[in-house]
Amino acid sequence: MPTRATARKGCGEGPGRYPRLVFSPQGPSLRELCVQAFSSVERGYDLLAPKFDHTPFRTPDSYLGATADALSDLGPFDQGLDVCCGTGAGMAVLRSVCRGGITGVDFSAGMLAQARSAHPDATWVQADARALPFTENFNLAVSFGALGHFLPTERPALFEGIHRALRPGGLFALPVGAPPPLTSVAHWATLGFDLTMRVRNALWRPPFVMYYRTSPLPALRDDLMAAGFTVTTVALTVLGSRRDGSPRCRLIVARKPTDPH
């Protein structure tokens, strides 16, 4: 299960993908997952952090590699930021395309402790992604799998904070998967998961915000443009295509204009 609020990691969602229900033997037990699911998002991720990289919620290396390859054609960049960094998987992407320092921000102290151990040369900041403490510090920002932890009404604050954190001309890159076909198992699995989470949050406090079906590409594009970005997409063709030939995953490339007017 996955996160939310001081720079949340949307690890359970993956970058627009859907969960593979396969756990490593080193991963959490069913009991541990249940305890996490009935905790707050922050507390849940603190508990899960030591075993997180052994769960299907970690962003796959294939998605990280595809994102890095696409960004290499748009860079190089200087300072890089991973928003909702979790245990730091996205640092490999930033390190491959950034010439300067790299920074991860997350609200879970437990996840940051794991990230700091794995990447001691990076800078780590504990903060709420809806109120990022940066102003024009970075040339590139990325985020992997975090969107499910933000309600649609919270996305404007998230995107405005990322816009503020970037220097003029800076990029925000976000992989987003195509919705699964109506006839697929993934469609009904994610629908059932979201309904279950809505019932859980209606009956249990604190809430655990994690939804798979609240971030369609058109809505993300509208919210990013409202925050001041110009938005394009890049097909990550290496990740495959759907039956209709459309890409399974696209990289949203949101640029902060060099001219504020």
Rank of each mutant, 00 (worst) to 15 (best):
A5I: 12
K9E: 09
K9F: 11
K9M: 14
P15I: 04
G16A: 08
Y18G: 00
L30K: 11
L30Y: 05
L33F: 05
C34G: 13
A37F: 14
S39Y: 05
R43T: 10
D46W: 05
L48G: 04
P56K: 07
F57H: 03
R58L: 13
R58I: 13
D61F: 04
S62L: 12
Y63Q: 03
A66H: 10
D69T: 12
S72Q: 15
G75F: 08
D78A: 15
D78T: 13
C84R: 06
C85F: 07
T87D: 12
M91N: 08
A92V: 12
S96L: 11
C98V: 08
C98P: 04
C98N: 05
M111T: 10
Q114T: 05
H119P: 00
T123N: 13
W124K: 09
W124H: 12
V125G: 01
A131W: 00
T135L: 06
N137D: 09
F138K: 00
N139G: 12
L140M: 03
A146I: 13
G148H: 09
F150C: 14
R155Q: 12
E160V: 11
I162D: 10
R164M: 00
G169T: 12
G169W: 10
G170Q: 03
V176Q: 13
P179Q: 13
V185G: 02
H187E: 07
L191H: 06
F193A: 11
D194A: 04
D194Q: 05
L195V: 11
T196W: 03
T196F: 04
M197Q: 11
M197D: 02
V199Y: 08
V199G: 04
L203Y: 10
L203F: 10
R205D: 13
R205T: 14
P206I: 12
P206H: 05
P206F: 02
F208R: 09
F208S: 12
R213V: 05
P216L: 06
P216W: 14
L217R: 09
D222A: 15
M225H: 08
T230V: 15
T232L: 12
T233W: 10
T233M: 13
V234G: 00
A235H: 10
S241G: 05
R242Q: 07
R243M: 08
G245M: 08
P247K: 03
C249A: 14
R255F: 06
